[in-house]
Simulated assay, not measured.
Amino acid sequence: MNSIPVGIGSVKLSYLLFGLPLAPLGVIGYLQLKVTGQRYTVTNRSVSVRGALAGQVVKQVALKDVGDVVVEVLGGQEFFRAGDVVIKNASGDEILRCAGVPQPDRFRHVILAARDARLQSDDALAAINRRK
């Protein structure tokens, strides 16, 4: 995009020659991801993968089954500050992979905080039920 340094006003000529013809491809790619892509949802009970358009659950993992959450940054993801969030069970086996998550460290923290809160509330509820 910066191959032709000559400008027309404040806009570089290369932006007009390359950017405008390529813009429809960007729009098509964006719309395709919105229709066929996936969303990752964390609730107080589970982490789920949902279809982007219909919102149907594709895969779901209960928070009580989450042992550890690891971030793996693959080639090309570092530039976009993205990565894969891998959810593992207590024995270290991968049970869910959330691919291409923006700000994966933040998403990892959200999952771990939700898991800890779920386990604490389950323990508190069990203690209350034992009193009865």
Rank of each mutant, 00 (worst) to 15 (best):
V57D: 08
G83Y: 13
D93G: 02
Y30H: 09
H109Q: 07
E72T: 11
K59R: 12
R118D: 10
L17P: 04
V70F: 07
D116G: 07
I95W: 01
A62L: 13
D122E: 11
V86N: 02
V86C: 02
Q38L: 11
Y30I: 08
A52P: 04
S48E: 15
L33A: 15
V11Q: 01
C98M: 08
G29C: 09
R39T: 00
G67M: 09
L96K: 01
V85A: 02
I4L: 07
T36I: 02
L22W: 13
G100E: 02
A113Y: 05
L119W: 04
K34S: 15
G76Q: 06
E94P: 10
L125V: 11
G51V: 00
L125Q: 10
I4D: 12
G7Q: 14
G92T: 04
S46L: 06
H109V: 13
R97P: 03
F18W: 14
Y40D: 00
R39A: 00
V11L: 09
G19W: 13
F80A: 13
G83T: 02
V47P: 11
V47W: 12
G26I: 03
R97M: 09
S10M: 14
Q77H: 10
D105C: 03
G75D: 15
I111P: 02
D123Q: 13
I95C: 06
V69K: 05
P24H: 11
K59W: 02
D122P: 03
Q60V: 12
V70G: 01
G9V: 07
V47K: 01
G100M: 03
K88L: 08
K34T: 06
G37E: 00
I4K: 15
N2V: 08
Q120G: 14
R118C: 13
A124W: 02
R81H: 09
G7N: 13
L17Y: 11
T43L: 01
R106Q: 10
L16F: 09
Q103L: 08
P24V: 08
V86M: 12
R108A: 03
Y15S: 14
K34F: 05
Q32L: 09
L25I: 15
I4E: 05
G55V: 02
F18E: 10
D105W: 12
R50E: 06
V49E: 00
S46C: 11
T36D: 06
A124V: 14
S46E: 15
L20F: 06
A23D: 01
G19R: 10
A99H: 13
A113I: 03
D68P: 07
L74T: 14
Q120N: 14
Q38K: 14
F18T: 15
V57E: 05
V86I: 13
T36P: 01
K34A: 09
V86D: 04
V42L: 09
P21D: 06
G100C: 03
M1I: 15
L17I: 15
V71G: 10
N44Q: 14
R39E: 00
L31G: 08
R130S: 11
R81A: 07
L31A: 15
A127P: 05
K88I: 00
P102G: 08
Q38P: 07
L25P: 12
P102R: 05
L119E: 12
A23N: 00
L63E: 08
V57R: 07
V58N: 04
V58W: 07
A126F: 10
L74S: 13
V86L: 03
G83D: 11
V69S: 08
L119S: 05
P21Y: 06
G26T: 04
D65M: 11
L22R: 04
L16Q: 01
Y40Q: 00
R108F: 03
V86T: 06
D68E: 15
